[in-house]
């Protein structure tokens, strides 16, 4: 089938079996390799993307499910080459070490701040609970997200 949706604000039409994982469609059909595969079963959150503003694990979403939706990946966070405040804060505060969880973590944090612009640390912990990081101990990630409260 042909699946039509928008990715990072641009229209996309992809010929794919409806059951193909959104993760594979993004990485292999649209060359958006910022979305990572860490476990393939929805545990690690490395493949997190936003569908109509909500965080999902793209390894658990079938391509057919995004028909008509707006998908945001990490490649869509910067605008005209300018990093988002969160991306900037991740760099400044050392929230990205190896970087493999970073795209998913950024998207989860974006969704959290969009819904709750002034989260407490506990709310940040809950908001990021679906995204595993093995490098940072999360502390610097919390710092970066809390620094972007508005």
């Amino acid at each position: 089938m042909i699946v039509r949706f928008t990715v990072n604000g641009e229209k996309a039409a992809v010929e794919a079996p409806g059951s193909r994982r959104l993760l594979d469609v993004l990485r292999e059909e649209l060359a958006l390799t910022g979305t990572k595969e860490g476990c393939g079963e929805g545990e690690c959150g490395a493949c997190s993307v936003l569908i109509d503003g909500e965080v999902v694990n793209s390894c658990l979403v079938a391509a057919g499910q995004v028909e008509g939706s707006a998908v945001t990946t990490v490649e869509g966070l910067a605008t005209d080459g300018t990093l988002s405040p969160l991306q900037q804060a991740f760099i400044e505060r050392g929230a990205a070490q190896c970087g493999i969880c970073t795209p998913g973590m950024l998207l989860a944090a974006h969704a959290l701040l969009a819904e709750n612009p002034r989260p407490s640390e506990d709310e940040v912990r809950v908001g990021l609970a679906g995204n595993l990081c093995r490098c940072t101990g999360y502390t610097k990630i919390f710092d970066a997200v809390l620094a972007c409260r508005t």
């Binding site: 390799t33 990490v74 970087g99």
Partner: peptide, 16 residues
């Protein structure tokens, strides 16, 4: 920088 924009290329990201 590349790690926060998705531009960093890990092994499985390389298209060959």
């Amino acid at each position: 920088m590349a790690k926060v924009t998705g531009a960093a290329r890990y092994t499985d990201d390389l298209v060959i």
